[in-house]
């Protein structure tokens, strides 16, 4: 059974522990600007939504990549960027309709959530249970997929 990041915004207090943990795990610095998960605040901070890649089945990023730098991890199912292959062309950053692949000018590569190889640090760091890593056949999962982009029936 594959696992998924389950995000429950109701529980998010916007403490940004997830962003700090993510940037530390991937970039070795505590810097929310370098995080692959991002907390968006609404209603003047009364509501917050942690947001990152849903590892969608359509995999727009993967299909747009010209050099096969994005592949599916056999362990976690995450769409992972291989830094050695990525040329930094950024086509995936415009192809992803969720806006969850970003270009990092310092590295000259793109970055996205890779589920930390199966031990997502955002979920680990979240003190309120707003982000958890659970079995993917949770009942809300299908509903989320329905809200995903339907513009193209990908083959």
């Amino acid at each position: 059974m594959q696992k998924a990041l389950l995000i429950n915004p109701e529980k998010c207090t916007s403490c940004l522990q997830c962003e700090l943990a993510c940037s530390f795990e991937h970039e070795g610095v505590f810097n929310p600007a370098k995080s692959r998960i991002k907390v968006f605040e609404f209603e003047h901070g009364r509501r917050a939504i942690p947001y990152t890649c849903t590892q969608c089945d359509e995999a727009w990023c993967l299909h747009a990549c010209p050099v096969e730098a994005i592949t599916i991890s056999p362990n976690t199912g995450a769409k992972e960027v291989n830094d050695n292959t990525c040329v930094g062309c950024k086509v995936c950053t415009i192809a992803c309709p969720f806006g969850t692949v970003n270009y990092n000018a310092d590295s000259g590569k793109v970055a996205k959530c890779d589920l930390c190889g199966g031990d997502p640090q955002c979920a680990e760091a979240c003190p309120t249970g707003a982000i958890t890593y659970v079995d993917a056949n949770w009942t809300g999962y299908e509903r989320m997929l329905e809200s995903a982009v339907r513009a193209h029936p990908a083959a």
Partner: peptide, 23 residues
């Protein structure tokens, strides 16, 4: 723009789930 997308597509439905089905 990002907030608008979240606000319109996911803001009022909760919880949200990410990640994968078996590939």
């Amino acid at each position: 723009a990002m907030s608008a997308y979240l606000g319109r597509t996911q803001g009022d439905t909760s919880p949200l789930v990410g990640a994968t089905r078996a590939a």
